[in-house]
Design a binder for these strands. Structure first.
Length: 250
DNA sequence: AGCATTGTTTCACA
DNA sequence: TTGTGAAACAATGC
C-alpha cells in the first residue's frame, strides 16, 4: 500500500499515541528491527513517551520525551500503522509499543519489508515531494541520463513518489516515463512538479495512491482514461510502468 | 508452477 | 568517483 499518502496517514495514526507512557515493546522481529538485537529498542523506549510524529516522503520518525532517542519507522511494501487495535493474526504485527493505558501501536506488515530502528539516518532522503519548491524541483529532477520515471522514484532526489504515483503524475503531466530526466525544458519540469503535487494531494485526500485516475487502468489491456488509446507497458527504473504513448509521446 | 508486487539497500559495472 | 541498473530481501496473491 504505502506511498507518500499512506505514510502521511500512518503519521496521523502515530499522533493518536502521543503522550502515553510506553510500558512494553515487542522488537523481537530481527529482520524488521535490524540491526538491533531483540530487546535493544525496548530498553531504550520503556518508560518514555512519544512526543511528536514526523515524515519526509515515506520515511517516518517519532521523537521521544527528555533526551530519548528518535524511533524511525518505514512501512516497506505492505505495512501500515495501527493504534489501539487488537493484535493481528499470523504475527503480522512486526513491531509493537504497549502503553500504560492499555492501548498499543503496531507496525502491521504482511510482508516483512517494514522497518523500526532507533536514531534513523535519513540524511540521504530528498525533500518531500508534496513540499518541494519550484527551483529545487528543477535542479534535482531535471538532470541525469536516467529515464524520468527512475528519477521520480529515486528517494534521494525527491521523497515520497512510488510506482503508482509516478505513473499517475507522468500521465497527468503528459510526459513519457522514458524521457531522459536531464533533457526536459523548465516548462516541462514545472508541469511535472504541479502534476506530482496535485496527484499527491489528491491521493492524500481520497485515501491513497491507488485512487489515481490512471491507476484502475494499470493492467494488461488497459486503456488511457483520457484518449481511450491502448496503454503501453514496460519495465522502467526496475518497476512495471504503464503509460499512454499517444498522450505521453517520447 | 511461476510470476508479479504500491519499497529499499547493496553490489557490480561502466 | 559518479551514475545507473540488476539482484536481494520476505511473504503473499493471482
Amino acid at each position: 500500500m504505502p506511498e507518500l499518502p499512506e505514510a502521511e496517514r500512518a503519521r496521523q495514526q502515530i499522533e493518536r499515541a502521543l503522550g502515553r507512557e510506553i510500558v512494553a515493546v515487542d522488537d523481537t522481529d530481527t529482520y524488521v528491527s535490524r540491526p538491533h538485537a531483540p530487546g535493544e529498542i525496548a530498553a531504550a523506549l520503556v518508560g518514555r513517551k512519544l512526543v511528536s510524529a514526523h515524515r519526509r516522503g515515506k520515511f517516518l520518525w517519532v521523537e521521544t520525551d527528555d533526551d530519548g532517542p528518535d524511533l524511525g519507522l518505514h512501512l516497506g511494501m505492505a505495512g501500515r500503522i495501527v493504534v489501539d487495535e487488537p493484535p493481528a493474526p499470523g504475527n503480522w504485527d512486526r513491531f509493537v509499543l504497549e502503553f500504560a493505558d492499555g492501548g498499543r501501536l503496531a507496525l502491521r506488515d504482511k510482508r516483512r519489508l517494514g522497518r523500526a530502528v532507533l536514531e534513523p539516518d535519513y540524511s540521504h532522503v530528498g525533500p518531500d515531494a508534496a513540499e518541494v519548491g519550484r527551483d529545487e524541483f528543477r535542479a534535482r529532477v531535471g538532470r541525469g541520463g536516467a529515464p524520468l520515471k527512475a528519477r521520480l522514484l529515486d528517494q534521494g532526489v525527491i521523497a515520497g513518489v512510488g510506482n503508482l504515483l509516478a505513473d499517475e503524475a507522468l500521465w497527468r503531466a503528459r510526459l513519457s516515463p522514458r524521457l531522459a530526466a536531464g533533457s526536459l525544458s523548465v516548462e516541462q519540469l514545472d508541469a511535472l512538479r504541479r502534476a506530482v503535487r496535485a496527484a499527491t494531494r489528491d491521493a492524500i485526500k481520497l485515501g491513497g495512491a491507488h485512487t489515481g485516475r490512471l491507476i484502475p487502468h494499470r493492467e494488461r489491456g488497459g486503456v488511457c482514461p483520457r484518449c481511450g488509446g491502448a496503454l503501453a507497458r514496460d519495465t522502467i527504473g526496475g518497476r512495471t510502468t504503464y503509460w499512454c504513448p499517444r498522450c505521453q509521446p517520447d
